[in-house]
Design a binder for these strands. Structure first.
Lengths: 198, 198
DNA sequence: ATCCAACCGGAGGGAGCGTCCCCTTTAGTA
DNA sequence: TACTAAAGGGGACGCTCCCTCCGGTTGGAT
């Protein structure tokens, strides 16, 4: 990810191996138990000591970011297909839904994500910025050729999606209420909202 | 709050006293450090042992509910003034804003609140239901005599406010973005949104 | 083959949660 | 006023989790 100085040593293979084991275990634990899964438990399942985990990932956010990385790449790879949609309004709505699903990968994920937004040194802020950039592109397109309201901005949309994902994860709303919320949100940024097939 | 059987003993004054001390300390700690303030710390500041705190308040939610009680009464007392507003749309918007402030009393409050919504045995669900009932009244009025959209329901509005309070508390959005979010939400439930002063 | 940096993980201190158990205080009663 | 039974009190404890220190080990470079 970052280039080394010319005199840097090649990283040790056992280090890389352990790192991969940790990310693997983290992905499982975060998926099953949410973002507050015990780091000790993750280390134990990876077969390493706690110190090893903390050396590779100084904070829970760093581990989260790595565990999310692969899924994030898949997400961004699918964007071109969405962008090819005939209707820019529809494309924006589809993208919003895709982001909502992505932010629902781990129970409780919206919390650290929204907390990472204001600070730029968090391991989660870079991937977030990429999502916001894509949102901006799709939004601008929908503002030019669709019915998106001119005063809406990409950060606002991202916050909306975060809120939706947050509310969904708590299980407070049934599917109907959730769909109403999505429609209400869409009405907030689009001038003409059509019913979306699921 | 609950009546005792005919042969119930009068509660002891030291018990009531300690209970009040605990709620008092909890109010301070929750206000300063958010809803995850250490219960041990609250007990210590109240001058009681941990067991005493847990006897009076078996869960953190119970303590939260009690700490919120007084403010909740003030809130509901102010409703009549809002209901007297000439414009029902405006009244609904004012009420939404008041709820948002109430749910921002403690850092992190929206989380346990939204989690309490689906279950009816949580100490927080009764006060929430009261808020939803008021919301329903104001919403119905705005649907009859204002421009509120007919498909919107009170639970949806309460969820929206929870989301706003949640997003606000994280500090991810500046005031301008936050105001945009509020307007977007209002566009979602009102047909004609006027700019609100502040 | 040797060196030394990078890496490993057990052990342990610290914080918070929630409970058990024994002692103290108080409300009702004689 | 004196007694009693129940309610209340709190210290101490066991548990989980977080995070760090430190002596021992491994493996890349020469």
């Amino acid at each position: 990810m970052a280039e080394q100085g010319s005199k840097a040593r090649r990283p040790r293979i056992d280090g890389l191996h352990n790192r991969a084991l940790i990310v693997d275990a983290a992905l499982r634990h975060f998926t099953e138990q949410g973002i507050n899964a015990s780091l000790e438990g993750i280390a134990k399942e990876a077969g390493v000591g706690p110190a090893t985990l903390y050396r590779h990932f100084p904070t829970r956010e760093a581990l989260l970011a790595d565990a999310l990385y692969v899924r994030g790449e898949e997400l961004l790879a699918g964007v071109t297909e969405i962008e090819r949609s005939a209707d820019p309004d529809c494309a924006l709505q589809r993208w919003m839904r895709v982001m909502e699903d992505y932010l629902s990968l781990f129970q409780g994920l919206p919390d650290p994500v929204i907390r990472a937004l204001p600070e730029q040194d968090s391991p989660l802020s870079a991937p977030c910025q990429r999502l916001i950039d894509v949102t901006d592109r799709l939004l601008k397109h929908a503002q030019r050729s669709g019915s998106a309201r001119p005063e809406v901005q990409a950060d606002g949309l991202f916050l909306s999606v975060l809120c939706l994902a947050w509310a969904k994860a708590t299980g407070a709303a049934d599917n109907a209420t959730l769909e109403t919320l999505r429609t209400m949100t869409a009405v907030g940024y689009l001038d003409q909202v059509r019913a979306t097939g699921q």
